[in-house]
Design a protein around this nucleic acid. Structure first.
Length: 858
RNA sequence: GGGUGCUUAGCUCAGUGGUAGAGCGUCUCGUUUACACCGAGAAUGUCGGGGGUUCGAAACCCUCAGCGCCCA
């Protein structure tokens, strides 16, 4: 194995081949027969129609980081990949292709259409899978799953029957969200509400003594009114309750009813009740036995009202109805535009229509109760905790779930109807009686993805995978699909697996936003492409950027500059490693005994151990951003800026065996620590450094308590202060970095031991000199022979600034110590700390003042 | 309308009671035994407003204002 790195790091050259090697070596394959403890993550299945967007890149980076870390920690780590068949989305894609050829799915027929979709899937579906390889996802490809595969379909049939047998699935006529374009029912969560500019009109119903004015945003539905409702306590209308009022245009008489659902303060306090076209009205109608009048067909076209408006599109009808009412003098008030939230199809964005329709539902109450309790009693933890109330709020108030869809692509509802209206639910492998026909509808896609944590592991079979890897360890996903998917997995998981929760922890992350924190959207044109970023900066840079921005449950802003910054960080590490290896960094043999090391070596080992322990604990708590921050500063500041600089003198002149070994150790451990976040570059650097097989299967680093050395840390802080102050002096005096200055240290022995190292960093030539200037840092004096007089003004400015700082610091310390309350009540160590601060600043002030005086009267 | 979160440097964000931080950006200087995708140094904040608790508040409590998200 070559033990030298190329002069520059080129991600594009190595990433793809490294990934192939990892897969070929089988590192990502989990073994259900293993005796190691399991660690399982199932991937939130992307849509088969989807491609990798920046949100996936974040989600996958976090999951991969956890999986890789656990694998290194000795767990049998399984990250299970797969895709969702995405009913409506996929059907839409294929239908669009067909319509380009002038064919509709009905021309093909159901069987051929479904065949077409499968063909589409094998030709162009799953583009995202290759993009996951780019990102470095360490998923177990041998277990790749798809919600429409036969084993997952078996799971669907099994649970449908089980739910049905326990009366948790029923068929009923209800108001559901209907998409007049996709021609299917939608569940509540497939509805996107956004503000539309509509109208709000008040219409006078009735004649003579019996008149009442109602307010509505959907005037055309008045043709289907079955009643007018008022609040029972509303004095304005009390006398009208129970009377019948004339419904204009339709020329029918409808009752005036009283119901507490009506808000007295809203509009006129009287509302029209259109039982077949509004969910709230539906409820009232059931309570009061109001007639259901259907006036619109599945395409959103007026139909069945028996008026001249039949045949008009719903929006044309709205205008026409208002016009007709105006002609009759029945419009009492109009607000236009009236901006209000309107439901749209989450797939095609068309305005939805509430529609009375016979559909299949899951009775969620008992399931949701169990799903809420699992979190309430701590069996499932939501991270961050702040998001738990949102979960409860939703799951404790959930409506029954409409699961039937009028589509062809999906799991067909396993219910068969007999010639006389009988019905039978079939489990896997069962056949219907002769003459029975299957329900034409398919199940909501989320029905099958709710089974994902166990259907992918072989359920309902009692497979080895299921035994080994269920329940899964953690579910990592964006808070935006907490309701869509997470809650449903909770319900079905607890139900199907006899109360065993599908995962121990739900770790929620936020959304990726643009550099100004704005939501990314196609219309704003601020959408970024993760593939482009990987092409340009490498997968590691993208991963590091996303992980570094990932604070639990919080959105993150992302700018291309920041990915470039991560690339710079990768380059920095590369160059540092190259330099270290040229100077003989080594992992051969044991670390030298601690007491044989100099303070610089002891310090970096101490810092390394602290960093490892803290990063480990942060990653275990899903605190990716903070973990990255620590790694970044350890690597760049401690290691590159200080340790390597302070060690150069030793490499250049002395026996540096200890430092070479320590440096090798530090790099080895650091690469292990960073590998889960930046797998590619760390793999190349580590295998080159160590000559070993792969970091993917290397052991995770652990902190060494015996390496923690506060004394050395304190000493190095002192040395850093001295170096920084001398650099400031040189800078203020306009002395070039390259110019060597004769100098000497007057310092205590513990500092003086490192005079050579400091001199090397500071470009000082130590020796006997005639000083013409000096710096004082606490008890340390550094004298220089500048062979010219110093810039007095610059030096005075520098000292005066130091003086001001010291004075300010002393003052705040003094104020505290003069406060009797502080002395009496503050904790001992805080008081001691402030006393020390007072002493130090007092000494500093005296020293600086003396220097300033000398400057004036040399 | 109900719930919930946020407001800290020019920008994006950390910071759960003890001298205000990071990255990027800005300014000055610089090619010295890794690295200009770099180094050194510097500037920059009455921590949204007002009240309270406390010896001490960016942090805890109350209140107001603005912004955002979820649900209806």
């Amino acid at each position: 194995m070559s033990r030298e790195l190329a002069s520059s790091f080129s991600p594009a050259d190595i990433e793809a081949s490294l990934y192939k090697q990892w897969v070929a070596a089988g590192y990502f394959r989990a073994n259900s027969a293993s005796t190691k403890p399991p660690f399982t993550i199932v991937i939130p299945p992307p849509n088969v129609t989807g491609s990798l967007h920046i949100g996936h890149a974040l989600d996958h980076t976090l999951q991969d980081t956890l999986t890789r870390m656990k694998r290194m920690k000795g767990f049998e780590a399984l990250w299970l990949p797969g895709m969702d068949h995405a009913g409506i989305a996929t059907q839409n894609v294929v239908e669009k292709q067909l319509s380009a050829q002038g064919i509709s799915r009905h021309d093909l027929g159901r069987e051929d259409f479904v065949k077409k979709v499968w063909e589409w899937k094998s030709d162009s579906g799953g583009a995202i899978l290759d993009q996951m390889r780019r990102l470095g996802d360490s998923v177990d490809w041998s277990r790749e799953a798809f919600t429409m595969n036969s084993n997952l379909s078996t799971a669907v049939l099994t649970i449908f029957k089980k739910l049905h047998d326990q009366d948790l699935i029923y068929r009923a006529e209800r108001i559901i969200n209907w998409c007049p374009r996709c021609l299917t029912a939608l569940s509540d969560i497939e509805v996107d509400y956004h503000d539309d500019s509509g109208e709000f009109v008040q219409v006078r119903y009735g004649e003579g003594d019996i008149q009442i004015t109602v307010a509505t945003t959907r005037a055309e539905t008045m043709l289907g009114d079955g009643a007018v409702a008022v609040h029972p306590d509303d004095k304005r209308y009390k006398h009208l309750i129970g009377k019948k009022v004339l419904l204009p245009l339709a020329n029918r008489y409808i009752p005036i009813i009283a119901d507490e659902l009506v808000e007295m303060d809203f509009g006129t306090g009287a509302v029209k009740v259109t039982a077949a076209h509004d969910p709230n009205d539906f409820e009232m109608a059931v309570r009061h036995n109001v007639a259901f009048v259907v006036i619109m067909n599945e395409h959103g076209v007026m139909d069945g009202s028996g008026t001249r408006f039949d045949g008009m599109d719903r929006f044309d009808a709205r205008k026409a109805v208002v016009e007709a009412l105006r002609d009759e003098g029945r419009i009492m008030d109009e607000k236009r535009p009236y901006v209000h939230a309107v439901g749209h199809c989450s797939r095609c964005d068309i305005t939805l229509e509430p529609r009375l329709s016979k559909q299949w539902f899951v009775k969620v109450a008992p399931l949701a109760k169990a799903a809420g309790d699992a979190v309430r009693d701590g069996r499932v933890k939501i991270e961050p905790e702040e998001l738990a109330p949102r979960y409860f709020d939703w799951i404790d108030n959930m409506h029954d779930w409409c699961i039937s869809r009028q589509l062809w692509w999906g799991h067909r509802i396993p219910v068969w109807y007999g010639p006389n209206g009988e019905s039978v639910v079939l489990g896997p492998g069962e056949s219907p009686p002769a003459g029975y026909n299957q329900d034409p509808d398919v199940l909501d896609t989320w029905f099958s993805s709710a089974l994902w944590p166990f259907s992918t592991l072989g359920w309902p079979a009692e497979s080895d995978d299921l035994k080994k890897f269920y329940p899964t360890s953690v579910l990592v996903t964006g808070y935006d699909i907490l309701f869509f998917w997470v809650a449903r997995m909770m319900m079905f998981g607890l139900f199907a697996m006899d109360g065993v929760q599908p995962f121990h922890t739900i770790a929620l992350h936020g959304l990726v936003r643009d550099q100004f924190g704005k939501k990314m959207s196609k219309s704003k044109g601020n959408v970024v492409d993760p593939i482009e970023f990987m092409d340009k900066y490498g997968a590691d840079a993208l991963r590091f950027t996303l992980a570094r921005g990932a604070n639990p449950g919080k959105d993150q802003a992302l700018a291309e500059d920041w990915i470039a910054g991560s690339r710079n960080f990768a380059t920095k590490l590369w160059n540092a490693t190259r330099f270290a290896m040229i100077n003989g960094a080594s992992i051969d043999g044991d670390l030298p005994p601690l007491d044989s090391l100099n303070a610089i070596d002891k310090w970096i080992l101490s810092r390394l151990s602290e960093t490892i322990s803290e990063v480990d604990s942060l990653l275990e708590q899903y605190e990716f951003a903070r973990a990255c921050e620590l790694m970044y500063h350890f690597a760049w500041d401690d290691l590159c800026d200080w340790y390597l600089e302070l060690s150069k003198e030793s490499f250049a002149s002395k026996d540096s065996a200890n430092t070479k070994r320590v440096l090798g150790f530090v790099l080895d451990q650091l690469f292990r620590l960073m590998h889960p976040i930046m797998p590619f570059i760390t793999e190349v650097m580590w295998t080159t450094l160590t000559g070993q097989e792969s970091l993917v299967i290397a052991a995770w680093p652990i902190g060494h308590p015996e390496h923690i050395d506060k004394k050395s840390e304190k000493l190095i802080v002192e040395i850093q202060e001295i170096i920084t102050d001398v650099r400031r002096f040189r800078n203020d005096q306009g002395i070039k970095t390259s110019q060597k200055i004769p100098a000497r240290f007057i310092a205590p022995e513990r500092i003086n031991d490192y005079a050579d190292a400091m001199a090397f960093v500071l470009r000082l030539e130590l020796g006997t000199i005639t000083p013409s200037a000096h710096c004082e840092i606490g008890a340390v004096k550094v004298e220089f022979d500048l062979t010219r007089s110093i810039d007095v003004a610059a030096e005075r400015a520098r000292l005066e600034k130091d003086l001001a700082t010291a004075q300010k610091d002393r003052q705040t310390a003094e104020v505290k110590l003069n406060n009797q309350g502080f002395i009496a009540k503050a904790s001992e160590n805080v008081v001691v700390e402030i006393r020390e601060r007072l002493e130090k600043t007092t000494a500093d002030i005296a020293r600086i003042t003396a220097q300033l005086q000398k400057l004036q009267n040399p």
